[in-house]
Design a binder for these strands. Structure first.
Lengths: 186, 186
DNA sequence: AGCGAAACTTGTCAATGGCAAGATAGGATC
DNA sequence: GATCCTATCTTGCCATTGACAAGTTTCGCT
């Protein structure tokens, strides 16, 4: 990855995003530099700026790709709301770099077209799962949706922050299943 | 605050933490510099390092103070679990700088004695609220506690990230009340 | 009054983000 | 296949920053 025969990298944009995700996974969304990504990709220190403008540009691309992968993961979980919730948690823990960036809009440009399109799709997939929970009562349906979203998002974020004790094992989905079940199966 | 007659500041430690909280509230937990805090406090660029060592030291102090204020806020809510949950959300939204730092352990030193003491107290206050939910069944009580913690934490984090639509108004507690009610009143 | 420790300053260095200007390659058109 | 055009990438540069070292001022205690 460091050696490069020709002047042009070929797929620098993808390489930079991949390096960013790797660095964020290892050390968090703040503890990396554009120059480090450039070194990992084997290009000069100013090459990333051509594709992304600045750091926020890289993080915008990370967030957009994250929302796309997120929507894919939720879709693959099927129509069951409970399973969709567990897929939400599985994605967050398994792709923490994407997840953390996605829900920290101060890091990127929230009005980016690619980003908003990807997020809209993820929103639609989430909304689909809630639809039909309380037929005929839009207020109750809205509250049920927010409750489901909150509990899985909260569990995922608490797990990622290390707030949930380690004694419960290392499989967040197994721990979460009976916890969110309190809300979903009633 | 910029003028200072004597060589010694008098209460620099507190001033730096206050400036950090202010900066984090305005621009997030990453977008500030030690030198900026020093300028705000009217001291030289290296003065903060004497008290805190480095950036992580400042953030450790912010997290410790945050956990103390957090425990105070939860205690003041009384024994009702539902009201404690709403106090959790009220604190998170009203003191986002503290909240965001507290639940981002990569930013600070999680083994700091002052910090762990403050967090332990907050944990005890939270655990007290859950106690007695399912007498005689420790597993169920644990799951109930995690569910309650997850739903309020998730709602707060989603609200802070701007993921919850603005059409619902600007009072997170009013919006949250019927949402978390689905879990608490059953 | 004197002394040791704490608080703060000045000076410095490597690393970074971001910008400007230049070099190179790929591809379209003729 | 020659020419030009443009995207891609490089080199050079500057202000800012985090961190450290060494020196200076003040405080508090005896």
């Amino acid at each position: 990855m460091t050696e490069r025969p020709s002047y042009h990298h070929g797929d620098l944009r993808r390489a930079i995003v991949a390096a960013a995700v790797e660095a964020i996974t290892e050390r968090g969304p703040a503890d990396w530099s554009l120059r480090e990504l450039a070194r990992r990709a084997g290009v000069s220190h100013a090459a990333p700026a051509h594709h992304f403008g600045d750091k926020a540009g890289v993080l915008t691309a990370v967030a957009a790709e994250g929302y796309t992968r997120f929507a894919d993961a939720l879709e693959a979980a099927g129509d069951d709301l409970h399973e969709t919730g567990l897929a939400y948690i599985r994605f967050a823990v398994g792709h923490r770099a994407y997840f953390e960036v996605m829900f920290t809009p101060a890091l990127y440009r929230p009005d980016d077209p690619d980003l908003t399109a990807a997020r809209s799709r993820a929103d639609r997939v989430l909304a689909r799962g809630v639809h039909g929970v309380s037929p005929g009562d839009p207020g109750a349906e809205r509250n049920a949706g927010l409750a489901a979203w909150s509990i899985v998002h909260g569990f995922a974020h608490l797990w990622l922050s290390g707030a949930i004790a380690d004694e419960l094992g290392d499989d967040p989905v197994a721990v979460a299943r009976p916890v969110i079940g309190r809300l979903f199966e009633r």
